[in-house]
């Protein structure tokens, strides 16, 4: 039996490891390698050593992008998780319990679908949709209403430098919430009903139910959500590319590393693009490792 195990395990591993190495690890190696070259994408690459890195570190847009990632990294997970937890709680526990069982608010199965809907829309679709929502004149959804209501100047959601990034983050939150509602719902469904029952018998209010029972028992899920949203925060390329002004504008106020990669590729500077790619990859890895370490906490067995 024992001697058959190694080939058995190997047999299972060969295919996925090969695929993973070829399609994931090898491109990593290529990208890192490319970041030391100047390459226009047609013919010969030229070795330039650390020149690309030097240029990147001296580029304003790079630091702007980092700053934006930091902002998104804080706001996006916070807002998304807060909204998602709130909605998930209402959908699962928030209603009147019947026969000792916890239940969601009235119509919760309908809301579940509504919350999840944005998740199935493609990002460019959402981008175009919100271009209309934010449009700074009377035909914009928000400004149209505000102008009718007596505002004399439209709000430049995507034009004002200090509004543009939050406006984009709001779109990201809007899209992401649905998925986390479902994720947290799945988590809540696994919390034994007895615990809620016991707490309710002891006279706990909905609020303390949430903070004393749901939140601690969901900790694992929230932690995963946090990592996941953090990685989303390092992306944000698509929405910036479709929705933001003038390629990450106004004046770079919404640029992200993904967009800088894209801009460099557009200018046939593949070496520089790879350099930004390496930076993005490093940041994401550091973030993931850091968060997992920081939020490590004993999980409850039940």
């Amino acid at each position: 039996m024992r001697h058959g195990r190694v080939p058995f395990i190997l047999g299972f591993l060969v295919a996925p490891v090969t695929l993973y190495s070829y399609f994931v690890l090898w491109p990593y190696v290529q990208t890192i390698n490319l970041s030391f070259y100047q390459w226009r994408g047609f013919t010969k690459k030229r070795w330039v050593g650390l020149e690309n890195y030097d240029r990147m570190l001296h580029a304003d847009r790079f630091w702007q992008a980092l700053e934006h990632h930091a902002v998104i990294l804080v706001l996006l997970p916070l807002a998304t998780i807060a909204f998602a937890l709130f909605f998930a709680f209402l959908l699962n526990v928030g209603g009147k319990g019947r026969g000792g069982k916890t239940a969601g608010v009235w119509g919760s199965s309908f809301y579940r679908v509504v919350f999840f809907l944005p998740q199935v829309l493609a990002v460019p679709v959402i981008g175009v949709l919100f271009a209309t929502v934010y449009r700074p004149n009377e035909s914009g959804l928000i400004n149209g209403v505000l102008l009718k209501a007596g505002l004399d100047k439209p709000i430049g959601f995507l034009i004002e430098k200090n509004l543009a990034l939050p406006a984009l983050i709001a779109v990201l939150v809007w899209q992401a919430v649905g998925f986390y509602v479902v994720l947290f719902s799945a988590g809540m469904a696994n919390i034994p009903a007895e615990i809620y029952e016991a707490a309710e018998l002891d006279g706990a209010s909905k609020v303390s139910l949430f903070f004393r029972v749901t939140l601690p028992l969901l900790w694992d899920t929230i932690q995963t959500a946090w990592v996941y949203l953090g990685i989303l925060a390092f992306d944000a390329f698509a929405i910036v590319s479709v929705l933001a002004q003038d390629n990450g504008g106004p004046d770079g106020a919404t640029t992200v590393l993904g967009l800088e990669i894209y801009n460099n590729m557009q200018q046939n500077r593949y070496g520089d693009a790879a350099t930004y790619g390496v930076a993005l990859c490093l940041l994401s890895l550091v973030f993931a490792a850091f968060t997992l370490r920081l939020t490590r906490r004993e999980s409850y067995e039940y």
Binding site: Y28, I231, D235, I261, M265, V278, L280, S284, A288
Partner: peptide
């Protein structure tokens, strides 16, 4: 998925 998502951009360049 989180781990797989990270390399996607690098992959693109590559």
């Amino acid at each position: 998925a989180g781990l797989v998502a990270t390399p996607a951009v690098g992959f693109l360049a590559a």
